[in-house]
C-alpha cells in the first residue's frame, strides 16, 4: 500500500501523519485526526457538507486527497472559534436560527467564513451565489442568509472597533 508522510498545519497545529495516497481529506480529518465536524453528504462534490479551508480557499474535502495537503494550512470548523470565543459567523448562525439538524452547518460555516473575507459586504444575491456550493435540506436558506448578513455586520463592526 502506497503510504506517504504528510505534514500540514491543521487548525494552527503542526501535524505529521502517515497516510494512504488514496485517503480522501475528509476521511483523514474525520477518522485519522478525529475531527468529525466536516461531514460527508454526497461524495460527488455537490453538497459542500465537507467544506474546509485550505490555504485561504474553500475546498470540498470529499474530492481532495489528504496527500495533496502536504505543506498546506488547513482549517476546519473545529478551528473556527479562537481561545474559546466563537467566530462571528458561528454567533450569527446561532442568533439567526441558521441551522436545524446541524449536518450542513460546519460546511456552511466554513464557506461563510471564507466568503465574507472574499466579499465583506455582500448583497443577498451575492450571498446566495456565494453559498451555492452548499446544500441544506432544513432551513430553506432564508435564515442562513440572514446569518451571513449579520456576520458581515459583526465583522465590519469588529474591524471598525480595532481600527
Amino acid at each position: 500500500m502506497a503510504k506517504q508522510i504528510v505534514k500540514m498545519t491543521l487548525n494552527g497545529q503542526q501535524v505529521e501523519q502517515l497516510v494512504d495516497s488514496r485517503t480522501l481529506l475528509v476521511h483523514f480529518l474525520r477518522e485519522q485526526m478525529n475531527l468529525t465536524g466536516a461531514h460527508i453528504g454526497c461524495e460527488t462534490s455537490q453538497c459542500g457538507a465537507c467544506t474546509v479551508d485550505i490555504d485561504g480557499e474553500s475546498v470540498k474535502a470529499c474530492t481532495h486527497l489528504a496527500v495533496q495537503c502536504d505543506g498546506s494550512d488547513v482549517k476546519t470548523v473545529e478551528g473556527l472559534a479562537e481561545n474559546g470565543v466563537l467566530h462571528p459567523v458561528q454567533e450569527a448562525f446561532y442568533e439567526e436560527h441558521g441551522l436545524q439538524c446541524g449536518y450542513c452547518t460546519p460546511g456552511m460555516l466554513m464557506r461563510s467564513y471564507r466568503f465574507l473575507q472574499e466579499n465583506p459586504n455582500p448583497t443577498e444575491d451575492e450571498i446566495r451565489t456565494g453559498i451555492s456550493g452548499n446544500l441544506c435540506r432544513c432551513t430553506g436558506y432564508q435564515n442562513i442568509i440572514k446569518a451571513v448578513q449579520s456576520a458581515a455586520t459583526k465583522l465590519q463592526d469588529k474591524e471598525t472597533a480595532s481600527a
Binding site: G37, T76, L86, Q90
Partner: peptide
C-alpha cells in the same frame, strides 16, 4: 428562544452516527 442544540453543531461537536468510533 434561541436553540439549545446549536452550541455543539456550530463548533463541529455534534455526534452523528458516522462520528462514532
Amino acid at each position: 428562544r434561541l436553540r439549545k442544540e446549536d452550541a455543539r453543531f456550530i463548533q463541529g461537536k455534534g455526534q452523528y452516527c458516522d462520528d462514532i468510533k
